[in-house]
Design a protein around this nucleic acid. Sequence first.
RNA 1: GGGCGAUUAGCUCAGUGGUAGAGCACUUCGUUGACAUCGAAGGGGUCACAAGUUCGAACCUUGUAUCGCCCA
Length: 1032
Amino acid sequence: MAMEKAFNAAEAEGRLFEAWEKAGCFKAGANAKPEASTYCIMIPPPNVTGVLHMGHAFNNTLQDILIRWKRMQGFDTLWQPGTDHAGIATQMVVERELAKNQQPSRAELGREKFLEKVWAWKEQSGGTIINQLKRLGSSCDFDRTAFTMAGAAGDTRTGHENSPNFHDAVIKVFVEMYNKGLIYRGKRLVNWDPHFETAISDLEVENIEVAGHMWHFKYPLAGGATYTYVEKDEDGNVTLEEVRDYISIATTRPETMLGDGAVAVHPDDARYAPIVGKLVEIPIVPKEHRRLIPIITDEYPDMNFGSGAVKITGAHDFNDYQVAKRGGIPMYRLMDTKGAMRADGAPYGEEAAKAQAHAKGAEFTEGEIDAINLVPEHLRGLDRFEARKAVVDEITSEGLAVMQTLTKTVKDDEGNETEVSEVVPMVENKPIMQPFGDRSKVVIEPMLTDQWFVDAEKVVGPALDAVKDGTVKILPESGEKTYYHWLENIEPWCISRQLWWGHQIPVWFGPQYDENRECIDMLGEMFCAANFEEAKTQAAQKYSEKFGYTVEVVEQLVPDQSVAERKEPMPTAQGIEGKGIVRIALSRDPDVLDTWFSSGLWPIGTLGWPEWGEDTSKYFPTSTLITGQDILFFWVARMMMMQLAVVDEIPFDTVYLHGLVRDAKGKKMSKSTGNVVDPLEIIDEYGADALRFTNAAMASLGGVLKLDMKRIEGYRNFVTKLWQASSYGDSQIDAFSAERGAEPPAATLPLNRWIIGEIAKVREEVDAAFDAFRFNDAANGLYAFFWNTFCARYLEFTKPIFFSEDQAAKDETQATYAWAIDQALILMHPIMPFVTEEIWNVTEGRGFETGEASKMLAHAPWPTYTAADLVDAEAEAEMSWVIAVIDNVRSARAEVNVPAGAKVPMVVTQIDAQGQEYWDRNEALIKRFARIDSLTAVDEAPKGCIAIAAPGASFGLPLAEIIDVAKEKARLEKNLGKLAKELGGLRGRLKNPKFAASAPPEVVAEARENLAAREEEEAKISEALARISEIA
RNA sequence: GGGCGAUUAGCUCAGUGGUAGAGCACUUCGUUGACAUCGAAGGGGUCACAAGUUCGAACCUUGUAUCGCCCA
């Protein structure tokens, strides 16, 4: 059967993938040997809204390589696919979709209807990325495709995915962690996205450097107090001394001044020492209501930055929050959920008075503090950026901006230049790091809100220990250091999101009463349970115990502000129908969980937990996790913490971390830069195998991933090379008609015995590389073997055999060639599944006709032969000698410009018995590839002969009349130069007595052998040089 | 500012103690019966710098310089 001229990837890939799936090649346990160990990889679930990008392509290539390799080895494999519900991203996509189709908005629809829309969208479009994974050749068990929201309220399908219990698992874990005190609720400063109106995780914040301004304002000392401000240079000389009645503050966010709680200076800062503890006035809002705040000391301010004094706004800045917590400084929330200045509450005067009372020590509850609105009337409701302008203008017009004198040159109408000085407010233009929501692209606002937190410090221990004691390995090793560093400094993890799409927090709030049945807080009691029934039972019990009534609990869906403010007293039993029953309403927390909370359970949740099924016992803990180092903290570490906290087991034993895929120059791929490479376009143009091979070749441990089109093209050429070599075996030498199996054929010819040994060496190399996650070593080893050894040598060397009449040699070589190609296909299949499977099937004796998995390369047994089994040292020595002679002749010819096409005679002046034997057996081969037409034995090389040195032999090309003697002389001298350098090194080492004494014996022996060989070569070339010099 | 890492051929990168490699690019030659998505031959590196450990350092240690990434 004649093969096509080249592999048609575009045509073949879909067809092959379908055949694999139809045959069930990728099902869990497919091709497993009896009693096989398991090998399981959990895919890092891409967002259900996602499309395949280069990062996915890279990441999944590596996973697929390992899974295919283990599957061929007969492990019981499972590669678990699935998608992440991706809270914000999905909610945004659906909202946008609604807007595009002029449908009612999220707010108009309400929660339930909106969620119906999201589920419908998920059904329709959620499979995109899964199908794209198939184009890459990913051999996941797609029948088990899981989803992190599967089983949650509204899921339109059940049982279709292997994670019907995923929601149950998430809820169970929340309840358990709550009951163990690992999850708590509290008011903390969090990253707030004013567009989506939710708290978000650190991962969802992008810090971007933008052009910003730094304003300098004066905070007057209370009561007109003054002090002497002294500045000194490094040597202690006074450079400035003046009496001031203010402290100068620098800020990039003037609008937050309204919420200042203090001004902080460094404890070592002598400039401000006289006024520490004094009060200053916040220079904004109507004079009569201005608040006074203290000057405090804290390590946080940098004495050398700005004025060295900073304002502390605990509710709107993360650094200030820490300072405020340390110093007991009050924090006042200034903005609403949309990032506008608050418009609620009492007139400013009243609110400011409350704040002042609070600052003086009056008792306030957390809720009462939060209710204080310190935004003056004229700024209420303004967007935060408009408010900033207004604040700056007000302060400046009052003369409290720090001023500076600018001198500039102006030209009048006649062109005369004059210098004009003006005094302007001091505003520095400087780049500042600003946080943006990665989805919303709006500036993130630190916001003090009630949120749920995982007390990470309490669960971090086992996760740290598992890596420290080597139970879990992180590659590259530097990842372990990063892991330790983060876990050892872990912060509470904010897990609540003010979204609708996600796992709703299983906590119901109920009213809290004091002993007198007066309501303290309508939402003050919390009942955490897997479902409402259990929460009801808990609540009924609690209230009954407290008040001795039978309590009937009813749910009220939305715990809005009006509920919180009602403060109805505890109803008495007589109050309701005189039956001794009271009704109390519970309302469920409307918030949902951080997506990372649920994906933290991905390994165990997809395996059926909380039920311990057969799959759970079999595949959990899983084996290898391959993921980007950017989510080491957000996902990997959390999986470790959560699995260990919940079932006391590690989730996987090895983590392989890789970097970001960048463009050829090392730049991040981004839409705005326009350097995004679409993996699907690459697959269309070059084929999935070329992309996969490139990915494997790039994947050095800890390496930077720069995707160069030239490289992809090169590996596409490699695919062609493989195809051509197979085609040669097919049409030129009819190799595939030979009977062949897994065992190498019984070969007698050194050529065949040699290539069999070379295959065994590559097999060991590839296995060692995969074992160590050194994908690049495997790829490079296969590439070099196949191109340089198999094609450039072995394939060429089979030609003289097939042009001869030696039928036995032909038969043996056909069988060996076919076996060698088979082995190459097997070894390359994990990296390049498509082209290898296609060749496997189009070559004679195989095919997809039956559609059976056992006939497919994907299930071919992985070889276990070793170099020790198959390498024939004699055959290897012989072939190296042959190759050395050919290469030396070719090199010499090219350098002295013997026409490449010309066949020339050769003489031999000296040859040992071994060499003679090699020559006799390989004469046709050497003559063909060195382009020699005859060999004559002579006593002495003719004058002007080109010298060819080979181990144990001296040849010459008697071409004095056609070659350039000067060039030959130069060639020999160059060779001698190279040898001299090598010899110098070797002799130097061997002469040093300490070398022989200290170096391992095999190193010394190798150096000796090397020296002998180099000396022999040097002698031959020197002799040739002397001879050629006679005629020059 | 803290943490992690990098610096090797023109370019992109391998190489964790035995004297430096690959791909691309470059030069010269070549339609020699698998392949021009190719073949043959070749040029090109005091492995950022300095000191140290060692018989021996691109590799280990320390310092310096430059550049990345993450966190503040």
